[in-house]
Structures are given as structure tokens and as C-alpha cells.
């Protein structure tokens, strides 16, 4: 047995030195790499035989790869993947968090269409998304194009535009509710004194139909800086030669934008729109902090899906029902992402 091993090792060692020789003489990088891989295999076999190891080289390589992934993936699987599966299951139960679980089939989903508060939340969320996504996209793209030019104090403007994004929501919603205070705030004061809006017609920013507009404006203000940075990165990836060529062809600024910038930014826009949509569907804290008043409760004019999910889960303990609303939220996000994806693919084809 041992003799056999020794012979094997000897043979492999010979192969090893031959390969080493070849590697040094080989000039083609691709071939060289292949040789190295082969030599590594041989070396590994040798040590494996010497140490009586039985794990194959592939397994070792995979173990290394998994060892890199494990710390994150385990956390990710336990704290994200499992709850997601759990959420799907929960949507078909009427669990209250304490009593035994009973499966109720589609009951939860069946009662959704007659639930006034769910419908109001759905409607408000959709209006909010439809308002915020295009506005933020246009604003951030416009700002990015301006800041991509050679302007003085570019860094200053960038930083300033990014400020609202880093600022905490609690703090800046407090500022907004003071600035837009319906009777004492500076915004309405300006409307009253400069634009001469009659006192009775001063907008009540945080109630009625206006509240969604306020939420949209606030979100655009807060998030445009973030998407601007993404657009800036996209713009920097466009080769200047394209513009030079366009300039030679006599393209004006609009045409340059229409035929060079916009198509070149397609994948960036895709990313921006998808991220924006996902983030907008998640709206909760903005609504509660701006429209919730002292008790953080939202009326039908300002309620949003996540608020209703929270209410059902943590106030009524209807965990199944709240999960079914969450599923609706998820399906909507999924559909919009898929539509975007298809559209993007079609454009690329």
C-alpha cells in the first residue's frame, strides 16, 4: 500500500516539475493560467496523498467560497429569508400571536376588497407612488445634468442637495410641520403677505386632499439628492466622444440630451425607477410624522399600506390579515419591477 503511494507521489512530483517548467516558458496568458490550474491540482493531489486527506480539491475550493459567504448568508437566511417564507404562510392563517394557528385559506384576501381602510390605504399609496416616482426622477436627473457641467462650487451644491437625504426623518419632519403650519408657519405667511392669498383660503398642508401632495413634495425634496448622485455616476460613464460627435453633427442641447444622454442613461433610469418604486411603496414614517398629529394616527385621507399593516399586526393582533396586506404590497412591487424589467429588455433588444 505504502509503496504504491510512494510511486504515485513520485509520478505526480515529476508531472509537477514538468508543468512548472512549461509555465515559465509559456507566453500565452490563457494557456499559462490553465497550466497553473493543472499544476495546482497536482500539488494538491500530492499533499492529499501524503496527508491521507480524502476531501477533493473541488470541495475544498467550495468550502473556501462558502466560508466567505457564510457570515452574511446565515444572518441573511435566518433574519430575512425565513421570515419571508413565514410571511407567505401567515397570510393564509388567522393567527393572533398567542392562540393556536388555524388556516383560513383565502379568507383574509377575500375580505380585503370590502375593507374601506385597506382600499383607502391602497389608493393613497398608489397616488403617492405615481406622484413621487416621476417627480423625483425628473428632479434628480435635471439636477445631475446641471451639476455634471463645469460649474463653480460643484461640490458645495452636491453636498447641499444630499443633505436632506442624510438628515433624520424625525428631525426634518418636525421642521416641515413648523414651516408649513397652517396658521403660523412661514410658508403660509409668505402666501398671505406676498401672494395675497386670503386668510380663509390658506392651504392646510397636513389634512384633506392636500396631505398627499405635501407627502409627495416632501419625499421629492428628501430623496432627490440621493438619486441625483446615482444619475451623476451614470452621466460620468458616458463617453465625452459621443457628445463631440453630436456637436460636429450640429446637435443642439436638447437633441444631445434626447439622442445621447437619455439613451445612454437607460440602465441608470431603470435602476432609479425600480428603487424609487420599491421605496415609495414602503412609505410609512413620513406619513405618520407629517400627517399623524399628536397621536400618530392617520385618517383615511393619509393612511398608507404599511400603516395599515402595522395597525393590524401590533394593535389588533390580526397577524394573518396584516400579512395578507403585506402580500398585496409585495405583489404590486413585483409587478412593477417585472414590467420595468421587460421594458428595459425590449429597449436593449
Amino acid at each position: 500500500m505504502n509503496e504504491k503511494k510512494a510511486a504515485q507521489v513520485k509520478k505526480l512530483e515529476a508531472e509537477f516539475s514538468e508543468l512548472t517548467q512549461q509555465i515559465y516558458t509559456e507566453n500565452d496568458i490563457v494557456k499559462k493560467r490553465k497550466l497553473i490550474a493543472r499544476r495546482d491540482k497536482v500539488r494538491w493531489k500530492v499533499t492529499a496523498i501524503k496527508n491521507n486527506r480524502r476531501i477533493s480539491r473541488e470541495t475544498k475550493r467550495e468550502l473556501i467560497a462558502y466560508s466567505f459567504i457564510a457570515p452574511n448568508f446565515i444572518g441573511f437566511a435566518v433574519f430575512t429569508l425565513i421570515p419571508i417564507v413565514f410571511a407567505f404562510v401567515l397570510a393564509f392563517t388567522n393567527w393572533d400571536g398567542n392562540n393556536a394557528v388555524t388556516f383560513v385559506g383565502l379568507e383574509n384576501f377575500k375580505s380585503l376588497p370590502t375593507d374601506t381602510f385597506f382600499l383607502a390605504a391602497l389608493r393613497n399609496t398608489i397616488i403617492y407612488v405615481l406622484g413621487t416616482v416621476p417627480l423625483t426622477m425628473v428632479a434628480s436627473l435635471g439636477l445631475a445634468i446641471l451639476l455634471n457641467q463645469k460649474v463653480k462650487a460643484r461640490g458645495f451644491f452636491r453636498t447641499v442637495a444630499f443633505f436632506p437625504y442624510v438628515a433624520s426623518l424625525v428631525a426634518i419632519t418636525a421642521v416641515w410641520s413648523m414651516m408649513f403650519h397652517p396658521s403660523k408657519g412661514p410658508v403660509n405667511y409668505l402666501l398671505l403677505t406676498v401672494l395675497k392669498v386670503p386668510q380663509a383660503d390658506l392651504p392646510k398642508w397636513f389634512s384633506g386632499t392636500l396631505v398627499l401632495l405635501t407627502l409627495i413634495l416632501f419625499s421629492v425634496w428628501k430623496y432627490m439628492g440621493y438619486y441625483m448622485v446615482i444619475y451623476l455616476a451614470g452621466l460620468q460613464g458616458i463617453s465625452p466622444e459621443l457628445y463631440e460627435a453630436g456637436g460636429l453633427d450640429g446637435a443642439n442641447t436638447w437633441q444631445k440630451f434626447r439622442y445621447i444622454t437619455w439613451p445612454q442613461l437607460r440602465s441608470t433610469t431603470f435602476f432609479v425607477v425600480v428603487m424609487l418604486t420599491i421605496n415609495c411603496f414602503k412609505v410609512y414614517d413620513i406619513a405618520v410624522m407629517l400627517a399623524g398629529g399628536g397621536d400618530g394616527k392617520l385618517s383615511t385621507s393619509a393612511t398608507v399600506l404599511v400603516y395599515y399593516i402595522y395597525q393590524n399586526a401590533f394593535n389588533y393582533w390580526k397577524l394573518g390579515y396584516s400579512s395578507s396586506i403585506a402580500m398585496v404590497l409585495f405583489v404590486m412591487v413585483l409587478i412593477i419591477t417585472l414590467i420595468q424589467f421587460r421594458y428595459q429588455k425590449k429597449l436593449e433588444a
Binding site: 410641520s177 413648523m178 408649513f180 403650519h181 397652517p182 396658521s183 403660523k184 392646510k204 398642508w205 397636513f206 389634512s207 398629529g293 399628536g294
Partner: peptide, 10 residues
């Protein structure tokens, strides 16, 4: 006014 009270959470 209720709207005011609510806006400032008085």
C-alpha cells in the same frame, strides 16, 4: 383649530 392642533401635536 383642529388642523392647527394636529399639525403641531399640541
Amino acid at each position: 383649530n383642529y388642523a392647527d392642533l394636529s399639525a403641531e401635536g399640541l
